[in-house]
Amino acid sequence: MAAATAALFDERFLKKLEYLHVVAKKVFAGRIRAERRSRKTGSGVEFADHRDYVVGDDLRYLDWGVYGRLGRLLIRLFEEEEDLHIYLLLDTSASMRTGSPPKIDYARQVVAALAYVGLANLDRISIIPLGSAPEGGARGPGRLPPTRGKGRIFKVFDFLRAVEPSGLTDLHGGLQSFVHQVKRRGVAVVVSDFYDPAGYEAALNLLRYHRFEPFVLQLVDPREAEPKLLGDLEIIDCETGEVREITVSPRLCAAFAREHRALCEAIESFCSKRGIPYLRADTAVPFDELILRVFREGGFLR
């Protein structure tokens, strides 16, 4: 397993990352480092908007000119320039172990690529595994604290190598602890198969409510989405260990495929309704193509 994981981040992989970085620069030409603007009163120089004064606002930002003309107290808002925090939230539940190749391997590459692009843009990258295992426990390496600069990519690799999928999927629990522990807001990229019995809606809403900018990447293994099974089987849930006897017919397979498609479409619909960028990643598609789609989709880098 370790060898297989090591092979994920080989020389070729690094070359691909560099290529992606170059492409990302082209796509977002004209953007400079730390140029990301947040619309809030702050140390920025570019006027953005007015809003009504409320008690407690810094009087220095009162627009006295408007007050003289209109008699209203308005606070001048500036675009604040700040470092971007990118949180890569990686689902490490046992269901990520399944698939061919395992979804976790694909997820590792995708996360590594996004991290590289972010690091190269001098953004602060943090990787947070989402699993039911206790943080820093025996099963996982905890989280990768915000880090910056291209040189840190190997640390990212090491971290990702140490991630082992296990336990139940608990998006809500994982994100709840994330939003409470992280003070700096930023882009929160959720990489998961979204096979959560408790649902994904409350979890994604948590990010929104806490003013993160969620970005959803759903990993789908085509063989899991459209299984080619037949006959009398005993299916075992890889997370819960639940066993069920079924007899699979082509019709049942088709029904399952429809159900899976409905699940994916429900997530997409949920995201699009809430302005959350959503991408469904087919693990049969090479990861670099996916990354380019991420860039084209927008929302990850602005």
């Binding site: 698939g99 198969d193 089987l233 849930d237 997370e239 399952f256």
Partner: peptide, 18 residues
């Protein structure tokens, strides 16, 4: 009947279909 064992990532989806 002795059945073949298959590990699935999300049995609940199968249950929903069944």
């Amino acid at each position: 009947l002795r059945r073949r064992r298959i590990e699935v990532p999300f049995a609940r989806l199968w249950q929903r279909v069944l």
